[in-house]
Design a protein around this nucleic acid. Structure first.
Lengths: 357, 357
DNA sequence: TACCGCAGAGAAAGCCCTTTCCCGCAGGGA
DNA sequence: TCCCTGCGGGAAAGGGCTTTCTCTGCGGTA
């Protein structure tokens, strides 16, 4: 690889001058030298060594992001929001997938710190794991102590700036909807127990049921991976144990899609025999058939906010922005089969407009 | 941030010794000093400056990847394959999204070169744009001249190692299937004209139709963005122009899903009134209803191969690995409405097993 | 006892840039 | 004519790490 001094030598100038030309320094350089340098750069196909630059320059510019999995639509949307703000400010993003492995998360914090990122954003559920939480907080504190900025999305265990989707209210809205439709035998297809997202959403759901005088026994909950196959599997276990279920609440949309696959395989009509409600409103939710009734989270906005927090002026006290959840009624949630008798003859709810195109 | 010499000072050793302990150098260090260094590292929460390390070390280890968009399932799958091999070999991946912008692609090649990556992988369709192709090849050649390794996935314009999905045969298989089902009025929902993937798939399709004595007039093709909304829009334009279409070939699954949305909005039954065939077999294809008939590409394997090429021993001559496409029959392609009369009474094809769970 | 070899530690030379500091020179004012 | 100013350029000092080279002191052999 050609180096700066190769360029300087070829142009017959000092490395200092070459550097100034290449970086558009404010220090003036005569046109003749400038041209010679530029010509040398082109001839040698010179590209500055980014590591040497970052070492020599003092200011840090890149931002590190740790998500569970960018290819998961939930994180893809959040990342889109992060990216938008970062790009506007000319920041490079380093994105790392933890695949929900706490140890890997810790490692990535170190890695990104080592890469001298100006800020760090952790997105995705926290863990019910005190030892881990403590370690993470220590590492983040150490990072912040050296001037690094930190924000988290969707995890309350960190004491700094945070953007929090209102998971609990989301669960509540879904629960209220299902209760309102007359469902009593509601099964829950849940993500891993250890995730705070799981327990928060569950808590909201439980509260909604409690308000109607119902409870949510553990036997009506199945914990599995937070993805399509996990949802399919959990739904199957749920139905095996309790064939009379009239509704399934899936704690995210991927799981809901898996649950729909299970119901289809068992020829249980949705929503006539079993209703399904998802969570997150990922883009694909409107494209499955029937279109998925779900709880929308402003995912892109969550990313935008988090990046803005971290790139904006630091605050004296930690800021927490709670973003609202919203119920999106589509076609997978209908009246409970026995409740339907009361409203006999009423056709299943017409397809919602937002599913067309 | 604490530096290595901070650690050394605190441990009462030289930076050289500290470095040796921290990196597990083969040079022996007495246990006592080792412990002192480790203690200092822990107390200072020391993390080595990655840029300084990369600058000081001679060997390059990271691998750069340029894709159109990782959050697109097509690339997410490929990336999964890349990641698998890279992780096995302890390589870090730097992934960049070009968002199908050739200029950005060029910039990223420079960026990654600047970051001293050991290899570069470009995934995703090439462009029908000679100026761009020439520039890219120049840059890649310059990079290879300095010892960098390069592989491309799905683009034939680069002269080096390549992994090529058999887009043309895939198009051919889809075309033969539709012809076999009696379709003659076939519309195509195509990606951007400028992408070689579009033209390759189209060429295969055209060939299949030609073998049956049919042609594919331009008025039956609509070009749009290679995503869900592009597919929805193109399908709408296609149906507006020619309401008698009995089949739609979408040049990727995202577009197929958009086309299904349009058909649903217009109450055109799939596959009874209109058949749809997609391309790629992304994971979601089996979960839409009806499940999508499509052409499968071994996406993960493509990633695995490309990374293996680039991390393995260099070959004297460029290698091209062509990976086969395979037709996956599910539920969106059925007999053409007029052909159906011939097989009157035959129920629509039973749901394929692979859609259950 | 003299010498050799080696283990274990440190000194110092890079790796490739950026940027401050300094120098020479030409032009303008006194 | 002399001095000051300011412009354009180069020298050199880092930035934080790795690694080679060098040095010291010890045990072992002849």
């Amino acid at each position: 690889m050609a180096t700066l001094s190769d360029v300087a030598r070829r142009a017959g100038v000092s490395p200092a001058t070459a550097s100034r030309v290449i970086n558009g320094s404010s220090k003036p350089v005569t046109d003749e030298l400038r041209e010679r340098v530029l010509a040398a750069v082109a001839e040698l196909q010179y590209v500055p060594n980014a590591h040497a630059q970052l070492l020599a320059r003092s200011h840090r510019s890149a931002v590190g992001v740790i998500v569970h999995d960018v290819s998961d639509p939930y994180f893809a949307e959040i990342t889109r929001g992060l990216q938008r703000v970062a790009t506007d400010q000319g920041r490079l993003l380093m994105i790392c997938n933890s695949y929900r492995d706490p140890d890997r998360e810790l490692e990535y914090v170190e890695l990104l710190r080592g890469h001298q990122v100006a800020a760090l954003i952790l997105a995705g559920s926290g863990y019910h794991d005190d030892a881990f939480t403590r370690q993470l907080n220590e590492k983040l504190a150490a990072y912040e102590a050296t001037g690094g900025r930190v924000a988290v999305i969707g995890r309350h265990e960190h004491s700094g700036d945070a953007v929090m989707p209102d998971n609990r209210t989301g669960g509540y809205l879904a629960g209220r909807e299902l209760c309102g439709l007359g469902h009593r035998a509601i099964g829950v297809v849940a993500g891993p127990r250890i995730l705070t997202t799981t327990t928060d959403r569950l808590a909201g759901l439980r509260q909604a049921l409690a308000e109607q005088g119902h409870d949510l026994p553990e036997r009506r909950i199945r914990y599995a991976e937070f993805d399509r196959d996990g949802g399919a599997e959990a739904a199957a276990r749920l139905l095996d144990a309790d064939p009379e279920l009239t509704a399934i609440m899936a704690l995210n949309d991927s799981m809901a899609i898996g649950a729909l696959a299970t119901l289809r395989a068992r020829s249980l009509a949705v929503p006539h025999r079993v209703s399904v409600v998802g969570f997150d409103d990922m883009p694909i939710a409107r494209d499955v058939t029937p279109a998925l009734t779900t709880v929308r989270l402003p995912l892109v906005d969550m990313g935008v906010r988090a990046m803005s927090l971290v790139l904006g002026a630091p605050a004296p006290a930690p800021r927490v922005e709670v973003l609202p959840a919203e119920l999106i009624r589509r076609d997978t949630a209908g009246p409970a089969p026995d409740a339907r008798r009361d409203t006999a003859g009423s056709a299943p709810r017409a397809r919602r407009g937002d599913t067309a195109l």
